[in-house]
């Protein structure tokens, strides 16, 4: 009798523990793919701090430079585009892009459609300096949606964004990362930057039926590689 009781207790225990363990949403960012760009940037800041060769090394010790510089506004000669279509050959995405603004609560609005994606219009125009953001659904009520395969992107994959009259921007994936929904680095995704960046957002992680929402957000960080503007 006792053996059975032990076994049931053990089984129950393993079930409860593994349930919580498997269901545990991440509390920290998970980087799914990354190029070395971030590391390179740090090195560059440091080497920039080395003394210029004409200075006497005996006289002045090299200054160790270590900080992230602020975004200083400089003239931007690229006009940027109003995005109309996005194409991601690596995962077979070819979708229309609409304009989205804020929700009533001040969050980012998304399209009602599961086949269309939304560009955050109050933010940066694709092609200009700053973070442009495009969000799309991972699934609808009954199955996968436009950005279902976004998690499969890898650093180096290309993304094409088309504007009116055939303008075409080419972006390269730098990093793919997942964040807990309430702890995402909004400033890194939407805030000021010296780069011409495009960040794609969709949902990921476990689905919380009580809150009817996913517990994590997937962000694909990309930077502009090439731009071709339609003659105006």
């Amino acid at each position: 009798m006792k053996q059975i009781l032990y076994s049931i207790t053990l089984g129950l225990l393993v079930f409860i523990i593994s349930y919580y363990w498997l269901d545990e949403p991440v509390k920290e960012a998970r980087v799914l793919s990354s190029s070395d760009a971030a590391e390179l940037r740090v090195e560059q800041t440091q080497t920039r701090g080395a003394p210029p060769p004409e200075r006497d090394l005996l006289e002045t010790e090299p200054i160790n430079k270590d900080y992230e510089p602020a975004v200083v506004v400089e003239p931007d000669d690229q006009p940027g585009i109003i995005p109309e279509r996005i194409e991601i050959p690596a995962i077979g995405v070819d979708a229309p892009v609409g304009k989205e603004g804020y929700t009533e609560e001040g969050g980012m609005a998304v399209p009602d459609s599961v086949t269309k994606v939304g560009w955050f219009e109050p933010g940066t125009k694709p092609g200009r300096k700053g973070n442009s953001v495009i969000a799309g659904h991972v699934d609808g009520r009954n199955g996968p949606a436009v950005f279902f395969d976004l998690k499969d992107l890898n650093a180096g994959d290309e993304i094409f964004v088309y504007g009116e009259n055939g303008s075409k921007l080419t972006y390269t994936v730098q990093k793919v990362a997942a964040y807990p929904v309430s702890d995402a680095p909004l400033r890194e995704i939407f805030g000021p930057t010296d780069q011409r960046a495009l960040n794609l957002i969709t949902c990921t992680g476990p689905y919380d039926r009580e809150a009817s929402g996913y517990t994590e957000r997937l962000t694909v960080f990309t930077t502009l590689k090439d731009s071709r503007y339609a003659p105006s």
Partner: peptide, 8 residues
């Protein structure tokens, strides 16, 4: 906040 990009 981040957008609500899934219905589950």
């Amino acid at each position: 906040s981040m957008p609500e990009t899934g219905f589950g």
